[in-house]
Simulated assay, not measured.
Amino acid sequence: MWWIRWSEKKSRNRLLYSGFFMIIISSFLDIVGVRLGLWYYNYEIIPLSPAFLPWDFTVIPVSVMALIEYKHHFSPVLKALIFAFLSSFIGETIFEYFDYYVKGPLECFLFFSYLLYYLPDCNLD
């Protein structure tokens, strides 16, 4: 609710469209990755739904929308690099440490994740 109060009214449509775009992209990539056995999740947060659904519908779009809303004068490529680094090298490592997320057979998996986080985000601004 605080977002409605403090966000710029003229950019709300752009932010909501970019958040919706990130929901679609992240859900699609998670479905493909789980189906191909590249990674899997150990727990279901919401019963009878895919385990990745809460993260793809909350964490990723909200963080991308926050990066677009705040520091909008920064380069979109730089913001995408920062988001990809934090998400892949720190976020996924924490999820793996708590045994929520299990990587698949790829040896260079963190770099692969970095590219998956970076490519959809680099042109949102």
Rank of each mutant, 00 (worst) to 15 (best):
A66T: 11
E69W: 01
P76Q: 06
A80E: 08
G104P: 05
G91R: 06
F109A: 07
F57V: 13
A80D: 11
G33E: 00
F98G: 08
P47K: 04
I68W: 01
A84C: 07
V34G: 02
S88L: 03
L86Q: 07
C108Q: 14
F109V: 12
L67M: 15
Y97G: 07
D99W: 14
S87M: 09
W39S: 06
G104H: 00
L67D: 11
D30Y: 01
K103T: 14
V32M: 02
H72K: 15
I90T: 10
V34A: 03
G37K: 01
L38P: 09
S87C: 05
L106M: 13
P50E: 04
L110E: 11
L53T: 08
G33H: 00
L67V: 04
Y97N: 12
F89Q: 04
Y97C: 07
F109K: 09
S49F: 14
Y40V: 05
F95I: 10
S27C: 08
V64Q: 03
I68H: 00
Y43S: 15
G37F: 00
P105L: 09
G37D: 00
P76R: 02
L86H: 06
L81I: 15
G33L: 00
S87N: 01
V34K: 01
S18H: 07
L110R: 03
M65I: 06
F98C: 02
F28N: 12
K103L: 12
S87A: 06
F20T: 09
G91P: 05
I31W: 11
H72I: 10
F83W: 15
H73Q: 12
Y101N: 05
S63E: 04
I94S: 06
Y17E: 13
L81D: 11
G104C: 01
L53I: 15
L78V: 06
L110F: 14
A84Q: 08
Y41R: 01
L36G: 05
I45V: 12
H73D: 12
K71A: 15
E107R: 09
I60K: 05
M65N: 02
E92A: 05
